[in-house]
């Protein structure tokens, strides 16, 4: 939530290494996209934590409603056959 005269809030996502996902690491205020990226670099990658940065205006993020958590996420609970650990295999082929 920002007031009229404030710089908008941006969420920052950092990819630490090629092959990994971008991870949310926090937010900052910036007046425009270029500033947001530069500040994200200055604030969130001081310790060589980054190879790539995304910034998104916080008000552009669409989030699932926590009230709907049951509806959205519980059905996954009983479909355990989606997880590899569900399948017990003999030791000799368990590396699959």
């Amino acid at each position: 939530m920002t007031t009229q005269n404030e710089w908008p809030l941006w969420e920052v996502f950092v990819r630490t290494k090629a092959g990994l996902d971008h991870k949310h690491c926090g937010s900052l205020h910036a007046a425009d996209p270029k500033m947001a990226i530069q500040l994200a670099r200055d604030v969130y990658t001081r310790r060589q934590e980054g190879s790539s940065l995304w910034v998104v205006r916080s008000d552009q993020i669409v989030a699932s409603d926590p009230g709907d958590k049951d509806m959205y996420f519980d059905p996954m609970e009983d479909k355990v056959y989606r997880h590899p650990t569900f399948y017990a295999l003999p030791e000799s082929v368990n590396h699959m």
Partner: peptide, 11 residues
């Protein structure tokens, strides 16, 4: 003028 710039200038 703003915290973010404090960090940037120090950098």
């Amino acid at each position: 003028p703003v915290l973010e710039e404090d960090i940037a200038l120090t950098n």
